[in-house]
Write a protein that binds this DNA or RNA. Sequence first.
DNA 1: GAATCGTGGGC
DNA 2: TGCCCAAGATT
Length: 361
Amino acid sequence: MSARVEKETPRTIAARLLAWYDAHARDLPWRIGPAARKQGARPDPYAVWLSEVMLQQTTAATVRRRYADFIARWPTVEALAAAPLDEVLGAWAGLGYYARARNLHACARAVARDRGGAFPDTEEELRALPGVGRYTAAAIAAIAFDRPAAVVDGNVERVLARLFAVETPLPAGKTAIRAKAEALAPHERPGDFAQAMMDLGAMVCTPRKPACGVCPLSDVCRARRDGNPELYPRKAPRGDKPVRRGAAFALFAPDGAVLLERRPPEGLLGGMLGLPTSPWTEDGAAAPSRAAPARARWRHAGAVRHAFTHFHLDLDVYAAVGARRKKPAANQLWADPETARLPTVMRKALDRARGAGFGKP
DNA sequence: GAATCGTGGGC
DNA sequence: TGCCCAAGATT
């Protein structure tokens, strides 16, 4: 048994993983499966790039539900580049991390304008594009262009941390894990290998209760040999999230329209539409009335709690009906409250006002 | 290296 | 319910 372990090489590990992938690859709409790939089929680099950006910190199940809309609406990078930013942001609403949508648009424009619509095929050039970091550049290079890049996402980190029982907690442990990834990345089928690692992490080597019984690498996995693969990857403990408070204002016109405003182009929810709000602070609820978008008979419609990545938000929702559609400020507009494309926290706040009886013409 | 930046689902 | 987590990038 131990003699077998000693004989394992990066090459044999890659070969075993690829054999597993041939039999168990996930069927994903942006993917060319292993069989078609062996016949010479290659994915559209635009589709690979779009899916990879959507997948950043986002589950495949969520991307499945939203990817088709983007591809149908903007089938090529030129089409996406020609779209107004506000439309792209609207299509992205609810997906979170809205800098991704801003960068997506900027990247499409750069590729269309500077490169005639052709994505670069090297990690270095890909890395220079907006919203394309180390992981995404490697993923596109490997999956779209079969470059032997070390593709290291959260799945791969978990698989390799277990396979080699990496004791250094993340994020410091990323260096050692990356070294393992670079040693493993094969020159044969690098794109399939990258996707195989991620599929293994998503389906077998899961964060909790990994299915070691069906893992093609279980007999060489040091974490499993040591008895507790769930311990890996080790992580530094994280601190508590602060709570911020604020107020949101839903002003309705007699015809049911609601006043929305476009948020500043950078920062939290940057560039997205939302209800006017007071500043969000950690030190109690400052007088919200000063932040209201108009003088009106404001009624407290309820509260919304929302968990962001690094803080919690308690939002008091106020609603009122104005006598008419007042002239919106430069960053404001009147919209249909039912169909407006909003970030989830803003959708929750607006729906709270509607649930209190506002906004029905 | 540490902060910032969303959201939905699972347990 | 609260916490963890997911195909990370940017500053």
